[in-house]
């Protein structure tokens, strides 16, 4: 794998160069209450690398909480005209993405390009370069190693930065897009160094996460298939408020709602907005019948979609183990705990 080295000051310099070239720069930055979230940066100093897991995931840069799809206007003779929303094509570079977030974006490419090609999604994907920062393992909710990933996974990243001490990073070039970024700003990069240090960092991080993460999720699929109505779901979901905070912060929860909103008489906009399977409204039919009519069914849906349904359809997990759902849940639901419980049940059943 092609690699290079970049210092912290050159990384700031790279952000400054990009901003000067009118490229949008995004990364972890502080919100008004001091919490870290992914934001567009106006200046390199706003980026706070490696200061915790940003509150919400990176997905909002590719699938915004709300976005217009097209506008309509009723013209002469009552003819309805459709005006397509321009495709988002502003070049952007994300600096300091968490590897679990970058991996989530790549996992979503599958569903976004399956029965039809989601144009806004892929327009943003093509215009955006993701520079991730290998993670040292954050807290006990991290479980990337349980879903076939790792704190230093390159999945979804164009460039992966690995700390090698002295404020420098070894930068692994993962994709052609990453190579183009390095080639466009040669003054910011130095010849590759610190291979051993990078390897040591990666190994330590993987061991740290694996030490507290639940057993691998892949082997749980047969048990889950055979125990759709297991009491586990009823017990686990008692504390769930159906609030959807888990889906809002998740890098891979991608369900959306489509709404038509009138703006003035005869004009309006069709938008798509984030939605979640954790509310009754998500599945209610026009007849009033609701196939997922209680919270146990909804919690089961979220877990099964992540580790059974999506993998069966697309060959990969719909969970990157980022731990956000556990951190955000006001009811104290904990995905690592649920998976460990399933693993224990599956182990006993075999």
């Amino acid at each position: 794998m092609n690699a290079t080295t970049i210092s912290s000051s050159d990384l700031s310099g790279l952000a400054a160069d990009l901003l000067a070239a009118r490229v949008r720069v995004a990364g972890p930055a502080r919100a008004s209450d001091g919490t870290v979230e992914y934001r567009h940066a106006g200046a390199p100093a706003e980026l706070v690398l490696d200061s915790g897991v940003p509150r919400r995931s990176l997905k909002e840069f590719f699938l915004p909480p709300t976005e217009p799809l097209f506008a309509w206007r009723t013209g002469a003779g009552g003819r309805v005209e459709l005006l397509e929303a321009p495709l988002p094509a502003d070049p952007a570079v994300v600096i300091g993405a968490r590897p679990c977030d970058a991996a989530g974006i790549e996992a979503l490419d599958k569903v976004m390009g399956w029965d039809y090609r989601d144009e806004p999604w892929f327009a943003r994907r093509e215009a955006t370069t993701i520079v991730s920062l290998a993670c040292a393992g954050f807290d006990r909710s991290c479980m990337c190693t349980s879903v076939g990933l790792a704190p230093d996974t390159t999945k979804g990243s164009d460039l992966l930065l690995v700390p090698i001490g002295g404020g420098a990073f070894r930068a692994e070039v993962v994709t052609a897009k990453g190579a183009r970024l390095v080639a466009a700003y040669p003054a910011r990069f130095r010849p590759a160094s610190g291979e051993a240090e990078a390897e040591a960092f990666r190994k330590a991080a993987r061991e740290k996460v694996a030490a507290s993460a639940p057993p691998a999720a892949d082997p749980l699929r047969p048990w889950l298939d055979a125990h759709f109505d297991h009491p586990l779901w009823r017990e686990a979901s008692l504390r769930c408020h159906g609030c959807g905070a888990c889906a809002a912060v998740c890098p891979t929860c991608h369900c959306f709602d489509i709404v038509d909103e009138p703006e003035t008489v005869g004009t309006g906009v069709r938008r798509r907005n984030w939605d979640t399977c954790q509310t009754p409204r998500f599945t209610i039919h026009a007849s009033g019948h609701n196939p997922k009519n209680d919270q146990p069914a909804r919690i089961r849906q979220r877990v099964l979609h992540k580790i059974v349904i999506y993998p069966k359809k697309f060959g990969e997990m719909l969970c990157t183990g980022c731990g956000r759902c556990s951190r955000a849940c006001p009811g104290g639901m904990d995905l690592p705990e649920v998976l460990a419980r399933i693993a224990a049940l599956a182990g006993g059943a075999q």
């Binding site: 008004s32 609030c243 907005n273 984030w274 006001p330």
Partner: peptide
């Protein structure tokens, strides 16, 4: 406006 711009209408505030 700055604060509410971050709201994604997840409805967590209502559900809890």
């Amino acid at each position: 406006q700055g604060e509410l711009a971050r709201c994604t209408r997840c409805n967590a505030c209502r559900q809890v």
